[in-house]
């Protein structure tokens, strides 16, 4: 162990920091729940018509996933540059794939 300290003071500081982060995570969880309920509600009540429903629920899913990736999985934190790059890469290929399968499979 070369880099770490023995000071309990430091540990207290870290704990507070973790707690702060945890608070953000609980908030993002609440948001995710709200988005989920909204998505289900939009579909269940058929409140806004078929053509708007699909883009809206897709958007809600997207925002939720961003919360999940950035807060729960810490993609926003330092030291996640390479993971973020590879996830974006995966998302780019995923996007092309899904675009293909919704457009040029049937003609």
């Amino acid at each position: 162990m070369t880099k770490d300290t023995n000071s309990t003071h430091h540990n207290e500081f870290e704990k507070a920091e973790h707690k702060d982060e945890m608070k953000h995570q609980v908030i993002s969880f609440a948001m995710m729940i709200i988005f989920t309920i909204a998505a289900f509600a939009v579909v269940a009540t058929d409140a806004i018509g078929k053509y708007f429903t699909i883009p809206i629920i897709l958007l809600l899913a997207l925002v939720q996933v961003i919360f999940q990736l950035y807060y729960f999985m810490h993609l926003k934190n330092k030291g996640h540059e390479m993971p973020a790059l590879m996830i974006y890469g995966g998302i780019a290929v995923a996007f092309m794939t899904i675009l293909t399968f919704t457009t040029i499979i049937w003609w």
Partner: peptide
Amino acid sequence: FWFFLGGETVLFASLFGTFLA
């Protein structure tokens, strides 16, 4: 493991694509 998840993204995208088609 993060890189692996990048690959899994494509795996599930292929499955989603197949389902959508």
